[in-house]
Write a protein that binds this DNA or RNA. Sequence first.
DNA 1: GGCTTGACTTGGACAAAGTCCAGGATAGGA
DNA 2: TCCTATCCTGGACTTTGTCCAAGTCAAGCC
Lengths: 138, 138
Amino acid sequence: MSDLLERLRGRGWRMTAQRRVVAEVLAGDHVHLTADEVHARAVAKLPEISRATVYNTLGELVSLGEVLEVSTDKRAKRYDPNAHRPHHHLVCAQCGAIRDVHPTGNPMADLPDSERFGFTVSDVEVTYRGVCPNCAKA
Amino acid sequence: MSDLLERLRGRGWRMTAQRRVVAEVLAGDHVHLTADEVHARAVAKLPEISRATVYNTLGELVSLGEVLEVSTDKRAKRYDPNAHRPHHHLVCAQCGAIRDVHPTGNPMADLPDSERFGFTVSDVEVTYRGVCPNCAKA
DNA sequence: GGCTTGACTTGGACAAAGTCCAGGATAGGA
DNA sequence: TCCTATCCTGGACTTTGTCCAAGTCAAGCC
Ligand SMILES: [Mn+2]
Ligand SMILES: [Mn+2]
Ligand SMILES: [Zn+2]
Ligand SMILES: [Zn+2]
């Protein structure tokens, strides 16, 4: 994602080897890694990178809106580089595989006023759960 | 929830003071406590109850289907006694307040086959986020 | 009511996920 | 090239949750 790096430079980020590596690790589709998974892959490219830096960098990417934090998993937060196209998630209950999905319809419109308890609702998150083809045949 | 206690007795549960207290703490509507919150409230009624027992009891209640585990929070799991009526959640992004909601429509039907990647989808979880009236006026 | 026993509870050790900080390194402008 | 604010590091610490050996007790039986 060199366009990501471009945007970050534009925001006044110092381009360090560590940040470049974290950005590289997050490239791709359907990527939803935990912080420790990001760290493991980053270490493969830059052995001396620390856990603290990975956490810091992920936190910064999230507050810049360049990466989403998703919690489909009940254990660790996952980091999702697909922040610019709204989407939801389909999760395998057995192996944890995660796919990005784009349901039709607008769930926001499905919450009647009487069910809003005076809240100003701004966001909806939908998580589908099931069994992936791989786990189904095993 | 003495009907809960009834059901548990029927399932061969030993009725201990600890389990009674955990069940009491979970009584009510819109209850979504973390394990440690349950423990804190349980201790107020039964000072010598241990954290391990609270975790054990909550785990058992979940596997019996009497309590749901929800992860609206990115930190700790929350325990929801409203297991017998399907519902979704509305969460205040500021104070974390959680309300049970019942949207109209069927989000399951909104996921086209082409977006299922061969998964057998069995469950949908919808989380609305916003700001509660309390936080809005502050 | 008293015994017996397997289920239950306890406290503490351990693990996983995440935060924080003092001190050292460095990107990038002057 | 030099300077310095920003960034990185390793390790200590916190939070959330799991596990276990040893002690306790609910409930069935007499
Ligand atoms: Mn995604
Ligand atoms: Mn609920
Ligand atoms: Zn799977
Ligand atoms: Zn609020």
